[in-house]
Design a binder for these strands. Structure first.
Lengths: 234, 234
DNA sequence: TTATTGTATACTGTATACAGTATACAATAA
DNA sequence: TTATTGTATACTGTATACAGTATACAATAA
């Protein structure tokens, strides 16, 4: 077969496809927190049986995006003020741990890559492409956490990130006082700390930013936040 | 109906039952890491259909105890030396965060409860009841993490704990140099730090202990550790 | 009226059936 | 013999069917 080799075919099951569609819809804020999901209905819409839907739901339940009560419906998570604190504190804690693991693995190339992400963020702000900005925001942090080469850390971080992203998207849909410039400022500061290999500074910044964002989230979402239990629960 | 009230009936689905059975079997070291699971066979043994088995597997996959490759079999996780490092470092990091959240919630009653657990551990050691000791060891840490009142922290901790427990059980089955006395000593030191509200000391102890145990685990398991990928993967 | 009970309907949980893929091994050709 | 291809079998992925539970609302009695 000569020298040419085909790249491995990564099989995507129906379940995988459903999982990402549902996940994106939830994170993107297309379902209101606390709203319920009808397996049969979703299956009908996607023209598949309920089994792969159920498996996708099980996965997203474990990721903390859906809540199921036996024999009752499936609900999109809703956040209490305490939940917001949980999500952002976990995320910040995991990112702090990531600095410890990642910094020894990072070099000039990585600093450049991060710098580039910040530049793209500026462009996104300039062209008021806020959806893109959210993605770039994520990529900045994801880049660092990935560099930690710590699969369990990364997995847990993704879960918290998905929830925080969902909160920010809901907020973005409801509010208009969004100040995207702070994103760039925060990232520049973190990158500076990383370049100096100043782990403590990077951690401190992360914790401070996290607390600020959590607070903003709670304040602006205000009455929109539910209690810990989803509305449909008993 | 007078004053008498029935406690709520918590319904346990077939899937729930299967999940705990499988989880216990895996954590307990009844399946060798890297061994594979046959859905049909498990279904036959438990005399249920494959659907609830599949849902249980999906859950345990998310918990990091099972690994599935599309259209190939399901494998019990196997740990590389790096995986061992990951598990214990995550667990330690989460426990450190737990101190921050838990200590403000803890009072004399809690110190007494922890003291009592340590006493029970001494008894277990005296009567060489090591299975019980493992449970009591867990309860000590679980108690503290629970006091943090942080559901996401607790969930992630449980996942790491399950994997560390699995490692320790495999080790215990293979090795004979187990020195249970250190468990008691470690716990006494942590409890002392907690009583003094000395979070930094508690954190330091946790990180040190974690690193020591991870190292011991790697050394004693030695050749028994696999690579990151389960044996059957391609 | 209002609280309680009965009944239909919608939805979830599980079993069964079957299609699609991987694996093991036999058959074939060099 | 050894490498390659064909074929049977085992196992996973998904659809369909049905039983069990929750929910909504009508019927009934006070």
């Amino acid at each position: 077969m000569d020298n040419f080799v085909f790249p491995e075919l990564k099989q995507r099951t129906v379940e995988d496809e459903i999982t990402s569609r549902l996940r994106n819809a939830i994170i993107g804020g297309n379902f209101a927190p606390g709203s319920h999901l009808n397996e049969t209905e979703v299956a009908k819409q996607m023209n598949v049986s309920r089994i792969p839907i159920r498996e996708a739901i099980k996965k997203l339940e474990q990721e903390g995006l859906l809540v199921r009560h036996t024999n009752r419906r499936v609900f999109v998570v809703s956040f209490s003020a305490h939940d917001v604190k949980e999500v952002f504190s976990m995320r910040a804690n995991l990112e702090c741990m990531a600095f410890e693991w990642a910094l020894p693995n990072m070099g000039v190339d990585d600093f450049v890559a991060l710098q580039d992400l910040i530049a793209q963020q500026k462009n996104a702000i300039a062209s008021e492409d806020y959806e893109n900005l959210a993605g770039l925001d994520m990529q900045f942090h994801e880049f660092i956490v990935s560099k930690a080469k710590h699969s369990r850390l990364l997995k847990s971080w993704y879960e918290q990130h998905a929830q925080s992203q969902m909160l920010l998207n809901v907020r973005f849909r409801k509010m208009s006082d969004y100040t995207p410039e702070t994103v760039v400022r925060d990232h520049i500061q973190i990158l500076e700390a990383i370049k100096r290999s100043d782990i403590d500074a990077a951690k401190l910044l992360t914790l401070q930013i996290s607390e600020r964002v959590a607070l903003e989230c709670c304040q602006t979402l205000g009455e929109f936040l539910g209690t810990s239990e989803p509305e449909g629960g008993r």
